[in-house]
Design a protein around this nucleic acid. Sequence first.
DNA 1: CTGAAAGCGCTAACAT
DNA 2: ATGTTAGCGCTTTCAG
Lengths: 336, 336
Amino acid sequence: MAATIYDIAREAGVSSSTVARVLRGDTKGDRKDSAERAARIRQIADNLGYRPNLRARAFSEQRTKGVGLLYTDDAWVFEGVNDKVLQGLVRELRKHDHHLLLVPVGAGGDWEELVLGGHVDGCVTFQPLPEAVRSGIRDAALPCVMLGDNSDPEMPHIVVDDVTGSYSAARHLIALGHRRIGLYVHSTVKPHCSIQERFQGFELAMTEEGLVPDFWHCPEDEMIAVLTRGGARPTGLICYSDLESTLIGHAMWQFGLKIPNDLSLIGFNDKFATKYMTPPLTTVGFDANRIGTLGAEMIIRSLTAENAKEPPAPTSVQVKTQLIVRGSTAAPPREA
Amino acid sequence: MAATIYDIAREAGVSSSTVARVLRGDTKGDRKDSAERAARIRQIADNLGYRPNLRARAFSEQRTKGVGLLYTDDAWVFEGVNDKVLQGLVRELRKHDHHLLLVPVGAGGDWEELVLGGHVDGCVTFQPLPEAVRSGIRDAALPCVMLGDNSDPEMPHIVVDDVTGSYSAARHLIALGHRRIGLYVHSTVKPHCSIQERFQGFELAMTEEGLVPDFWHCPEDEMIAVLTRGGARPTGLICYSDLESTLIGHAMWQFGLKIPNDLSLIGFNDKFATKYMTPPLTTVGFDANRIGTLGAEMIIRSLTAENAKEPPAPTSVQVKTQLIVRGSTAAPPREA
DNA sequence: CTGAAAGCGCTAACAT
DNA sequence: ATGTTAGCGCTTTCAG
């Protein structure tokens, strides 16, 4: 159906190799007759609507120029700021003539067949993956970059500077006069490095001031119960992400409590809508798009480095965070 | 490097076709010796860590089992409820042993080469695409399903029942006593069918009551100016999406105006966070995940129908909407 | 600079 | 049921 280099070759009266070379621009055009022939070949290709067959090329070159995005199958892959990460990833990959495949892990449909079967040249992972997946990738020596996860020191990864982020958040609350401050992670968030590191930064700021860091990893109703009970409840809460902030902020409103008057709230991620919350959310932001861009660059590099037989050095990149102070934080209530 | 069927064949002392057949389970196992041999072949394949080479298979079968998701390169691809659509799409495709490729159109990186070069067997489109893209797909006779866009009657598509959605939203406001009601679409939203149809439903409800439908397609500050001026300003606003609701709700709060007391606000899409807005947003919801699932089923069907040489009949599917009444709507203020 | 030819790994039609 | 063989369309040596 579609024209091949052979069709062109026949019509031009040359060999298929010549066509292939010309079409790839792999010719100098020194001699005059050559140049003319090249032009004619291009002309014929154009007339025939020739388009290289990518399946054949992938087979021949033994690579697809595809990169798989592996993620565990929870509901939050495209949520939060991951959309921006994804955007940066896809765009940068496209710039380098590669493309992204979405590969949920553990959602039926065998990821192994797809990823290890050679339909992708490398992969990028979101979130901590099951050990089986990691070892599968490692055994296959498949180039891989982990995003937001440094649980595997062997693999290059890009993470957010969580320690500094939560440190500055805690510092901000302390400076406002808060003494009882907590860090809240929703129970649906699976344990991984970001939780630990956000706790570390938080803990550091607290202990520097001789304060005791409180930590919750529970469903929202438990957290809400703590925040709405009388007595020594926290007056400031740092949330693992903007999701928790949304949940807690809403609950406070339902209970007739005011933010920031009754509770200072800090989110994480600076997703778009938080700017428009009531009140606008103070949050720890970072350039999510850049995570994607860097991830793409990194995987592309190891994909090309592979051709050069040089094993890519394990690399770790941190993306800076910045506290964005808006309206959800203020001095603690008097009685505190 | 990786084991092939030839390696297995050699070791088992059989032909490669036999290996291929056994590995595909394409054998009855009638005779005892056959069954034994099959078992041995499987054993050897296992030992060798055999895994079918998907590139070779794609080349041979002339299909990749890949589906491209085409979208114009704006910032909202993964925003709103599109994340859910995407989720449904990916999962359903994976169930049918297919996978999704992300293909931004017009962001550098040639979509044509990727899509028309045979790296995907079909495609699904988000949002209205440039005519050049549509005709390219049509000329290549590439199976395609359009999501949220019925601008091309030739192509199968899945849309939301926008007319009924906005109709019920308007009806709700009218029942509450509102007379001056507007429909607001942000200027960043490009003209497409949903806008028209949401206007139609809105207009219908209004004219049924002898009311005049107001329509704005502008940046938020213009809309805000209209809402905060004195006199005959709208008391009820139906928004094209939850984005507009977020923007407007926030602006009202800044101006010291109350929702729903001073303005009743209705969103569209029912994205997760709107339930937690202050107050919770009344919105028109629909099963976004289902759009993805249906889209996947539809494209899979036309991919397999193609093998049967039966041109897929153009199909149109509508996903139902439902008004979700929460706290952002109430009777209009007295003076109105 | 060009042509001939091998090879990439699998599927499928055909013959046995 | 099994083996043989011919593709699938491109890249890449290797001669000329």
